[in-house]
Design a protein around this nucleic acid. Structure first.
Lengths: 190, 190
DNA sequence: ACAATAGCGGAGGCATACCTCCGCTTCAAC
DNA sequence: GTTGAAGCGGAGGTATGCCTCCGCTATTGT
């Protein structure tokens, strides 16, 4: 059930050749990332252009649809998340899983857009989800083989449990961590 | 830690005297309830008026601000939820708590607006939250006294844990129930 | 240095939502 | 019945967002 390394899914958007254009392209991505994190997936495109210091026309030339822009941002975020899975390879099974999941929460918590996207339908999102699973599922499997995690929990279950907590509002990060702890105890073998 | 029965918080909105007006008022509330459930707290007010079959002016006369309308709906929903707590009084401690929490999830799951509101700031929302706590906290306390629930979990923790799962997206209700089960296992004493 | 051309920005047309205002309608008290 | 007033609806002003189009500008290859 291994997947190809990462095909860099079919985004119809390419980094331009001219350097001024490239600068704008990057500024747009950065601004979009910021705006989506802050306001969720339906942040105003004109606001994004404004933040990037470019005209709205430039935004549309680079990203003809909202979806194009959103997916471009999303791919970057997902890549970072998947790379984080490698960082925990050295830890013992349960630690590795929990550490990655905690990183998942901490990482995604402030980024409403990612959270919303996690459950959106689209070839592209499906592809990214596949990558996340490819990164995280082995961590769960290892913990299950070590007898640390209950066998009746699938990776999908765990991810949705955790992302539920990710999406919830807490009074402070301490509470979020505590509650996440409860939830993780629930998937642990007793 | 008991509270006054329920003061019916300060909503500046009253059911009108004239029967045609009353009919419109009720239709608006029903339409709003529906729209908020479907589209979340920022459903279009003109759409709500349309659904109710009244002019937009009528909506504004009855509910001068979006907040007024939203709160009126919200109060109704919260009342139903609190009443559900009485229904489980006869069950053993753990069952009572879990049954009420499950009802909470099933009840709120489809109502995006309620979920969003649960964490909003406003005197009114605070008052409703107090009511929910008054209804649910004793269930937790009872389960803790019976040694069924870990002592380091507050009612607020549990509610946020559960409402996180409420807010998450699942492939089907079966998965939601399973994952909720994991989470509840996490707050149970081992 | 100088085209040729890729890239730029934002004006402006379209859609949608908010909210106010006021002439008309309907109720209900007498 | 009559009539005063409570209630009605929606036109229309304002704001905001989407997206297109096109005259101007900056870059790059020669």
């Amino acid at each position: 059930m291994t997947t190809e390394p990462r095909t860099g899914p079919t985004v119809a958007v390419r980094r331009p050749h001219r350097i001024d254009a490239r600068r704008n392209f990057d500024a747009l991505l950065a601004a979009a990332r910021e705006a989506f994190a802050e306001k969720g997936a339906d942040a105003s495109l004109e606001d994004i252009a404004r933040r990037a210091g470019v005209g709205i026309g430039t935004l549309y030339r680079n990203f003809p649809t909202r979806q194009d822009l959103f997916e471009s941002v999303y791919v970057g975020e997902v890549e970072e998340l998947c790379e984080a899975a490698a960082d925990v390879a050295g830890l013992p099974p349960w630690e590795a899983l929990v550490t990655w999941l905690r990183r998942f929460v901490g990482y995604v918590a402030t980024k409403r857009a990612i959270y919303e996207a996690l459950n959106r339908e689209s070839d592209m999102f499906r592809a990214c989800r596949t990558d996340i699973y490819a990164a995280g599922a082995p961590l769960l499997a290892r913990a299950q083989e070590a007898g640390e995690v209950r066998e009746d929990a699938s990776f999908d279950d765990v991810l949705r449990l955790v992302s539920g907590i990710t999406g919830a509002v807490f009074v402070d990060e301490e509470q979020r961590a505590r509650v996440l702890g409860f939830a993780l105890d629930g998937v642990r073998v007793r």
